[in-house]
Design a protein around this nucleic acid. Structure first.
Lengths: 405, 405
DNA sequence: TATGGTTTGTTTAGTCCTGAACTAAGGGGA
DNA sequence: TCCCCTTAGTTCAGGACTAAACAAACCATA
């Protein structure tokens, strides 16, 4: 095992860009502190980046008691990235600037089960890219519900999409001629959360998504845990009861069969709380109106979710639990069952752990995928591999065809 | 966050020592490969270590098709380490050589609740150390059942020992004048397992200990997960049932109240399977004789343990699950309930994950603690902090008071 | 208005490490 | 026997990074 992982050479240069993108302008001294680098090196690196045209010096900042800081900002025309969320019946696209801001979104119908689906995805991507800004495109991030062997290779297996070892990474790369990074969608979201969201101030957190299914991403020491086979975070299949409906995985008693939007809808239909064809919106409306049966459906799911997550808090000892996903819109109803079960199941020392609910937007999944590209700088361990190098190259090359001093 | 963790300066020198200690003699080329360092650097480092007298060149190895390798071996008189296991009613000591072999063991009664316990522990340690070999003592490793703020600081909180923020690290350091590394006992054991045991070939595994209580250590990418507060791995308090006896943590339904040796004994007594004063040995004997009630006690515990660990496998996606602790002696009886519950609760893709039972010896806990000292080299992230530096200094200084070329 | 303290940023000398080119030492086949 | 192949190990030039010393720019206070 490597004692000194020996990051790729210009990781730090890109880390500066990513930090400025995520947090806005900063001084050299501040960058050196937050990135744990020496001021000396920061001088060197920023000199290069300024020369390359990726950074520019902004105005001075008011003195903090000493010499005033010269702020550095990104040259926003330096690049853009595209993120894709793949679902079984549609794909969502988003284009983001180098600073992480969403520039453009789109959504298209898509049949993940079709034999030609890889080609049609490539086609949809091509036309989305063509409509974008003129800034150089650094790469494509793809978020999928399932396990991915590695971001760089991008071979996907997913029960939800009914995919088995689909080489989506290699195919898109060949078709589009761009760096392509593939990741589990929850992990991608967690990465976005770490760079731009509540996770920004935490190096250890647990991100839980509530949607059609239920998932989690584990961030330890600032890095996402992928597990041996890239399948870490599958909390949907934690066994929580001895009985219950059969899960898509074939087992009985999985958390996902009790605590997910699909599970809520199924239960509510069984109990005639909502009409046979109604969805989660109807259930929410019923609960909003104070329907006790609807409230109970949320409460029971929240109870099981709370106990399961309490177990994870014991195992992982995170600093905070962050809730994400479409389902957070109904969190008010969930929390009714969640909070008491969660707190009661925790050992006293952890009972005060914060549970934060992140504001959710439709574009968030795809934005998370785009973050894969922008987060490449943080990839000190080489998770993104060769594709990460390509992203870095594109970032630097586009700005300065001339050689560096 | 640090993009490039920038390991302490002579980490690699010590990594070489640790590798040779754990795996026996190796050639420069082999060391360079396994430690992911360049052959060039290996030449430099081994030159220093040979000069310092910590390494010696052994005979040539038969050619592998090219130039035959010159093997390098440890000079075994170069150092020793002492490990301590602290329990509520006793402490166990072990002295190990630099290559990890156990040289000497001892066990003493100890009252963890006494007000003078820190001083008496220091005294017991002093006398144990005095009886040891003449090789220089590199440091003391202490394993405790509870959470530790950091190995270097060594402030311990433990419900089992009824300790709250006890500064055992600082106290022993002051009293003994030696580097002291403190760690949760299960984490210490996992570290030993990674260096010398089944974990040697795996960078991602889950180690589960069955004893008086139940615990776990999580190893991801070769590093132990400590969590935000140093309390990761507390699987004993995962909620597994809505009912059950009250746990020492104050809650109801904790795994530990069903699946631990104490829980087994309590259940067996309740059901009159064993006499009121009898212990786990009696229960084992009964199960060995084929007593169905005794077998059922094991089976039920195994069932709950299997489901809980299946949940962890989903969340963490380890390569292998390793079982450790006194309780593994009865694993034959546990597995009767464990295996079906475990396999049935796993998603198909993970159903084949191996579960390995490590052979267990009385000295293992203390040996794990001693490994903290010997494993300091692997501490690229600075987990052991200043204490790790001191260990490294002692290792190098003792061998060569003269300056290095 | 000097003086010292504080924060920012640069320069310099030196450490750690790598890649590339090299030497060393064996084996096997024409 | 000679030549080529393979693996082991060394040397050398150079890159990335840091610590330490220094310079720059501001503030507060006597």
């Amino acid at each position: 095992m490597a004692i000194r992982p020996m990051a790729r050479t210009d990781v730090n240069r890109s880390a500066i860009l990513a930090h400025l993108g995520a947090h806005g302008p900063a001084s050299r001294a501040e960058l050196a502190r937050t990135l744990s680098l020496s001021p000396a090196l920061m001088t060197q690196l920023t000199k290069d980046l300024l020369h390359d045209g990726l950074l520019r010096e902004l105005e001075h900042q008011a003195s903090q008691g000493g010499r005033p800081a010269r702020m550095l900002g990104l040259v926003s025309s330096a690049g853009r990235a595209v993120g894709v969320k793949v679902a079984s019946d549609h794909v969502a696209f988003v284009e983001v600037g180098i600073d992480g801001t969403v520039l453009r979104t789109a959504s298209e119908p898509f049949d993940a089960a079709a034999t030609t689906m890889l080609m049609s995805l490539a086609g949809l991507l091509r036309s989305f890219i063509a409509g974008g800004s003129s800034a150089p495109l650094l790469g494509i991030g793809v978020g999928v519900p399932g396990s991915v062997d590695s971001q760089a290779a991008g071979v996907v297996s997913s029960t939800q999409l009914k995919w088995n070892n689909v080489p989506i990474g290699a195919t898109l790369r060949r078709e589009l001629g761009l760096p392509v990074l593939v990741e589990n969608n929850v992990n991608a979201l967690a990465m976005a959360e770490r760079l731009y969201g509540l996770g920004r101030r935490h190096r250890n957190f647990l991100a839980v998504t509530i949607g059609t299914g239920i998932g989690a991403a584990i961030v330890i020491d600032g890095l996402i845990v992928r597990g041996f086979g890239g399948g870490a975070g599958e909390i949907g299949h934690i066994p929580v009861r001895e009985d219950g409906p059969r899960c898509t995985c074939g087992n009985i008693g999985c958390l996902e069969t009790f605590a997910s939007e699909s599970a809520l809808v199924a239960t509510a239909r069984d109990r005639n709380v909502i009409a046979p064809g109604a969805g989660v919106a109807a259930l929410r409306d019923a609960a909003d109106r104070g329907n006790p049966a609807a409230i109970a459906v949320f409460g029971e799911a929240g109870h099981l979710l709370g106990r399961a997550i309490a177990g994870l808090v014991h195992v992982l000892d995170p600093e905070v639990v962050i809730l994400l996903g479409e389902g957070t819109a109904d969190w008010g109803h969930w929390s009714y069952g969640f909070e008491p079960a969660f707190r009661a199941a925790l050992i006293p020392a952890r009972r005060g752990i914060p549970v934060a609910v992140e504001t959710w937007q439709d574009a968030s999944w795809a934005q998370g995928a785009a973050t894969l590209v922008l987060a490449t700088p943080f990839d000190a361990e080489g998770i993104a591999g060769e594709q990460g190098d390509l992203v870095r190259q594109r970032l630097v090359q586009q700005a300065s065809p001339q050689e560096r001093s």
